[in-house]
């Protein structure tokens, strides 16, 4: 997955370098969208999007409903997210789960090359604000670009690996760790199904429930901190929708609740890892 390269052919009017003014350039994106444009705002990383939270939460996410449906905001905001590059606590946030808390916006977490391109293209047709979170770890990945990239849907989770014994539910950068865990689990005779949520809001609960009703077990993997994590929401909704289908409590693999430290051994220990996912699955599957 490579960061999208805007070509100068589009012209300096249309691709603008901005000052370090996150609140204002996101707010200006909202205004430009209200004014009839279709802006794509790149705030670099989720860490810096915190300076723009007021514009996002109070304006982007309210104006359509609050105006009685008179105004729409067709705005796209892109940013990198996630930890794992030893850049310390202020540059390692995974806050897409926070954003998914906010009604009136769409939250996308592409995890494949095809989704990285396809979701951006599809988002250009959305009438309301779309937030795209690209895990920084994914930029170094290579992958085949599917022709489907030109028509990816923005409403469904994807089964990345079918299986029967347990549902591993994840998104973004954690997808690849989860797939690796599934491979290791196969060696232990456990056939895991891997679900890539792709869209955190609106959440495709039906796909999750179909999977859980089949496997009767679920582990949610999420790089956010455990308390109030997106994994907590998925887990709650599984409990609400499939409690009697479960053979074991839903388990979560999340980040340890600390600011992410710089040294590799501590950062690794703070984040979800393949071994931890495998271990969590064994604990869940063991409870037959």
């Amino acid at each position: 997955m490579r960061r999208f390269n805007a070509t100068p052919a589009s012209g300096p009017d249309r691709i603008r370098d901005t000052p370090l003014s996150e609140s204002t350039f996101v707010g200006a994106g909202i205004g430009a969208a209200l004014g009839g444009l279709r802006p794509v705002v790149d705030v670099m990383t989720v860490n810096f999007s915190l300076l723009a939270l007021d514009q996002i939460v109070n304006n982007a996410a309210t104006i359509r409903h609050m105006s009685g449906g008179q105004f729409s905001i067709p705005l796209i905001v892109r940013m990198a997210t996630g930890a794992g590059r030893q850049v310390g606590a202020q540059h390692s946030h995974s806050l897409e789960g926070w954003y998914a808390h906010i009604p009136a916006i769409t939250v996308l977490t592409p995890a494949t090359v095809t989704d990285a391109k396809g979701m951006l293209l599809a988002a250009l047709n959305e009438p309301d604000p779309v937030f795209i979170f690209e895990h920084a770890f994914l930029y170094a990945l290579d992958g085949e670009l599917d022709e489907a990239a030109f028509s990816v849907d923005l409403s469904h989770a994807a089964v990345r690996k079918p299986g029967h014994d347990v549902s591993l539910i994840t998104f973004g950068g954690s997808l690849w760790k989860t797939l690796e865990a599934a491979t290791r689990l196969a060696e232990d005779g456990i056939d895991a199904e891997v679900l890539d949520l792709r869209v955190l809001r609106p959440l495709d609960m039906p796909t999750i429930l179909v999977s859980v009703r089949k496997t009767h077990r679920a582990v949610v993997i999420d790089e956010g901190w455990r308390t109030g994590s997106f994994a907590a929401e998925v887990s709650a909704q599984i409990m609400e929708g499939a409690f009697y289908d479960l053979d074991a409590p839903v388990a979560r693999v999340c980040s340890v609740e600390v600011p992410i430290p710089y040294p590799k051994h501590l950062e690794d220990a703070a984040l979800p890892q393949v071994a931890g996912i495998v271990q969590a699955v064994h604990a869940v599957v063991g409870k037959r």
Binding site: V87, Q90, Y262
Partner: peptide, 8 residues
């Protein structure tokens, strides 16, 4: 304590 690194 090594937790911050170069930037911290």
């Amino acid at each position: 304590r090594g937790r911050g690194g170069s930037m911290h």
